[in-house]
Design a protein around this nucleic acid. Structure first.
Lengths: 236, 236
DNA sequence: GAGTGGTCTAGACCACCAT
DNA sequence: TGGTGGTCTAGACCACTCG
């Protein structure tokens, strides 16, 4: 799986921004200079730059040049992060206990959410995710098989997002959440080691690749004493 | 001011989606066909298509084609909106029942959150907000008196945000939420007309003016059967 | 094997900005 | 006027999907 050139250029420039080699408000080399430097065509350079612009690292001024954004202001937007990534950030030890890993036909509802046809093959996964040996959430995942034909149980015992981004080299774009409160039923409470009727956060998520395709539909039950959402909203 | 071709193509295709000429899950013509149809180069077609993909109108399948997304699920960006505004948008009739309106000294925690000094005067408000006569949430507000010296009970019986933006002419900038699930205690359940131990969404909000000052700190208890949060996150 | 989207090239002309 | 990014072309080869 060879990385495309524009992605190499993109990562190189992003690193130069993060390391401080390109500083806030600095003009980076022009597209023509970058074209020479990386020995590629200008369109390839533009593809790399445009991604960084859409991610907020750079901004352009026609007739002037391309400049580095104030990256401090970015980081406050709500980010899509896998549970693994999130917990690792907090220095927690994660464990994933796989309960089910099956192939099932898509129901109407799942097919609609994942933009596949009814009865198309779906990877169905149930797992419990623990942080420092305390169960935090129960996840039920629906994943279109045709996107991940080499998918294996192991990917859900480690990090599914790592597999997607590193092994498959897909790009994750964004995620839609709904967040509700529910009382745990018998099954949920048992799995999360809480009492029946204890509150849980019930979250549905649909996550998209940068080609516009949803690649997972997830129902999650979070233990209320172990997890909460933080969100920043803007008045627009 | 001539429109670039890719934008004309983009709008044309978007219109065909919105008008229903291209239906959900339909494959649209291939890039080569579109190239012939509009009499432009393939790169121009791709620029138009990629914008529509990033906006969520289309998704692509390498080796298969380009397809129409389920457009109903657009426009989900998280906005700061007062409850009044939000419910009015849904055509609901709002009522606010004011339970308490008092002036109290700031505790350490409240002072820290509102960037005032301990024991500074705080407006303390409790109110129940109903939609179509069903109680939806219990709100407990802490507001720094020094920002609103002319504040009155009436402002909480109608819309506090309206008062801020129209009467005071302040600009609201953004809001930080934390969202948790809790079991309703005796008091909460009674106020929201639910059973004891029923789940509620417990939300804390800190809302800021565009000068960076927090102007309210709010604890809210939402009835789980009446309310949920929707959020869109980006991977950056 | 034929068709699709993904990547890439080596040019070109334009509008905008500074000097 | 010379340099920048914005738009656009007419090709090319690749990887993927499907029959």
């Amino acid at each position: 799986m060879k990385k495309p050139i524009y992605q190499i250029v993109e990562e190189d420039i992003k690193n130069k921004i993060l390391s401080g080699e390109y500083k806030t408000k600095d003009m980076i080399p022009s597209e023509n200079e970058l074209k020479e430097k990386y020995n590629v065509s200008r369109m390839t350079i533009r593809q790399a730059l445009n991604t960084l612009v859409s991610e907020g690292y750079l901004y352009k001024h026609k007739g002037k040049g391309t400049f580095v954004s104030d990256v401090k202001l970015e980081k406050n937007i709500v980010r899509v992060r896998g549970f693994t990534e999130e917990m690792a950030n907090l220095g927690k030890v994660i464990r994933n206990k796989l309960l089910k890993f099956e192939f099932i036909p898509a129901t109407k509802k799942i097919a609609d959410n994942l933009l596949v046809d009814e009865n198309d093959l779906i990877v169905y996964v149930e797992r419990i995710r623990s942080s420092d040996d305390v169960p935090v959430l129960l996840e039920i995942l629906y994943i279109p098989y045709n996107l991940f034909k080499d998918i294996e149980k192991e990917h859900f015992e480690t990090s599914f997002y790592y597999y997607i981004e590193t092994t498959k080299n897909y790009k994750i774009s964004h995620c839609l959440h709904t967040i509700e409160a529910r009382n745990a039923d018998e099954k949920i409470s048992e799995m999360l080691q809480i009492n029946k009727n204890d509150s849980v956060l019930y979250v549905t998520s649909k996550t998209f690749l940068d080609n516009g395709r949803p690649f997972e539909y997830v129902k999650s039950y979070y233990r209320a004493d172990q997890y909460r959402f933080v969100q920043k909203s803007f008045r627009i």
